[in-house]
Design a protein around this nucleic acid. Structure first.
Lengths: 218, 218
DNA sequence: ATACAAGTTCTTGTATACAAGATGAATGAC
DNA sequence: GTCATTCATCTTGTATACAAGAACTTGTAT
């Protein structure tokens, strides 16, 4: 027995929702999941609370909990907010970033480049995650950092799909370079705009993914 | 039976934490609160989950839950994020706002004016809430609106304290006018900057409140 | 006297039992 | 034959019972 079952279950369910194992609108049966995880209903219900607060699940009183995948409209809205939040991070970071962090950003982007060359989407994804994590941190605002991480995490599966678009990885890496250059110059406005554009393009081009979603499995 | 007990309890506890009835670091005893609310520990624990996710409470495994009031540094960070989020709302609203909403903003600010004249802090507070709620809505981004509402709500007690500062109500109202003017002109940049400044001043001047906190009761 | 250790008690985490509302089926009326 | 009503069943919401870990107390040794 690790420590709290509810935490482990919440993480597992969250992963299953994010990776699409649990389809939109699907009902999460308490007893069924309870015996599947070999626990009682109690920790499951606590996990449901957490998922509901994160917005991954909708709780209808006396009816049950249902998976709630965001629709296209909501996804566009979420990407818009993500773009603005990251833009704020970049603007603040422009004056607050450390030399070490700048080097780390460049290193992460360099590893992005090798991932592109070796056509390794997973590797690119990982280094891209690191790049953005550094950006959040260098905003110098821990609260902002946490908010960004939360939204970033929630959008993860949809960002991952983006990498399927032809040439997206290389383009994304190039945008990273623009951001780093602006940060190095200390140009807050340029860093802000470059970052907003970098993230917003994901939301704007999201309809491209819809078609690729229909032809491919997740 | 009306609504879920856990919901009612969560709201009650949230109110007690926000209005300072429950002090920072105080432990929330399950059995004690259970008999106080005349319920079992089960709905209480569900309520705790919600409070923990909102950040109002910290849950330490096998130890219990403790009230977690943000410190000064964190409050400043939260106000900074609030300023940026509202600034985004204003920028987006500049092109998306409806005539009706503009009129509603002006009406709310007019009622702010009468509250100032009759020296009615509660009335001012209420109308100020309405003003900001309209701004969030007019961003045209429902997800952003919800995020703003959540953070706004969390900062409520600290914003309320701001009104004690000499002349703050009148100044705040004047800032509202600047925002509305920019929105009416459709000047996104001006609306963004005016709104950011309007909210940021609360965070920047927060140390003023600390001293007033020490001389006055809440 | 102080520090450490063992046992007791108390609190949390989990499981199970119970209650109340919701869903669906079956029966009867029109 | 279709619709409504009632009853049975199922599921959620709540309470209680049980298990395990943490804290406190008490006693002893240095």
């Amino acid at each position: 027995m690790e420590l709290r079952l509810a935490d482990r279950i919440a993480e597992t369910l969250e992963g299953m929702i994010l990776d699409g194992t649990l389809a939109d609108g699907e009902r999460l049966d308490e007893v069924q999941l309870a015996e599947r995880f070999a626990v009682s209903r109690t920790p499951l219900r606590e996990a449901f609370q957490r998922l509901a607060l994160s917005g991954l699940v909708r709780q209808i009183p006396r009816r049950g909990v249902f998976v709630r995948q965001p629709g296209l409209a909501e996804l566009v809205e979420m990407f818009e907010v993500m773009a603005e939040l990251e833009a704020v991070c970049a603007r603040l970071a422009a004056s607050r970033i450390t030399d070490d962090a700048l080097a780390a950003l460049e290193a992460a982007n360099a590893r992005c480049l090798s991932a592109v060359r070796s056509e390794d989407p997973d590797g690119y994804f990982t280094e891209n995650e690191r790049f953005h994590a550094i950006l959040y941190r260098q905003s110098g605002n821990a609260f902002l950092e946490k908010e960004c991480q939360a939204l970033h995490r929630r959008l993860t599966p949809f960002r991952r799909l983006q990498l399927r678009l032809r040439g997206r990885m290389r383009q994304s890496m190039s945008e990273h370079e623009t951001i780093v250059a602006a940060l190095r110059e200390g140009d807050a406005r340029a860093a802000e705009n470059a970052t907003r554009a970098h993230v917003a393009v994901q939301g704007e081009k999201f309809h491209h993914l819809i078609s690729s979603l229909k032809s491919d499995a997740v």
